[in-house]
């Protein structure tokens, strides 16, 4: 086995997988994407100059892989919509809740669902800051942003999540009231 692969696998594999999983919310897709990360890393490893930390460099590659994936998806969906004249709502994915999430308390499930309402930028910042516990400067490095952009995007993301959690809560309560009647 390649020593670069081995070392990255030992140190960062689950982190990279987790980041990609929460980005795409699909285990099979995340498995494919993490492989794509390795392919890009193995191609570019010789050129890694150590200007940034290995961890933020790897996250920056994972971020590019995820963005490319969404771009392809968007292109494909747009093509289907044009051909079939469907509305966006009809092709929106409804992926089942993974076991790990389903077993958690209700609020965790809700926040997991609310992540879908965030923009890709907001989601990336949220994941790097709260799941991977990267600092503001590490996040900025991984996303090739300024620290100020990280801060404002993080702020907007949390604000958006609070709003969606509130809306989602109302929907749940309405559903419960209808059931009770």
């Amino acid at each position: 086995m390649d020593s670069v692969f081995d070392s990255i696998y030992q140190k960062y594999h689950q982190d990279l997988y987790r980041f990609l999983f929460y980005m795409v919310k699909n285990k099979e897709v995340a498995e494919d994407l993490v492989q794509e990360v390795y392919i890009r890393v193995l191609k570019a490893y010789d050129r890694f100059e150590g200007n940034s930390s290995e961890k933020t460099w790897l996250f920056s590659i994972a971020k590019n892989v995820a963005v490319d994936y969404f771009r392809k998806q968007k292109g494909w969906k747009r093509w289907v919509l044009e051909k079939m004249d469907l509305s966006t709502a009809q092709v929106k994915d409804h992926l089942p809740l993974p076991d790990e999430i389903a077993q958690q308390q209700e609020e965790i499930g809700l926040i997991y669902k609310c992540l879908d309402q965030c923009t890709i930028d907001q989601k990336m910042v949220i994941l790097l800051r709260y799941i991977h516990e990267l600092s503001i400067s590490e996040t900025a490095e991984a996303l090739s942003w300024t620290e100020s952009k990280v801060k404002t995007t993080q702020h907007r993301a949390i604000k958006a999540l609070r709003k969606y959690m509130g809306e989602m809560d109302k929907e749940v309560m309405l559903g419960e009231e209808i059931k009770a009647k």
């Binding site: 594999h13 689950q14 997988y17 987790r18 999983f21 929460y22 285990k27 995340a30 498995e31 993490v34 993974p98 790990e100 999430i101 077993q103 958690q104 609020e107 965790i108 926040i111 997991y112 949220i126 709260y130 799941i131 949390i158 604000k159 999540l161 609070r162 959690m165």
Partner: peptide, 16 residues
């Protein structure tokens, strides 16, 4: 905000 942040931190560590 704190509660939202705390919920985010509790998201499970899904693994490959």
């Amino acid at each position: 905000e704190r509660e939202v942040e705390s919920l985010l931190k509790q998201l499970p560590k899904v693994s490959d």
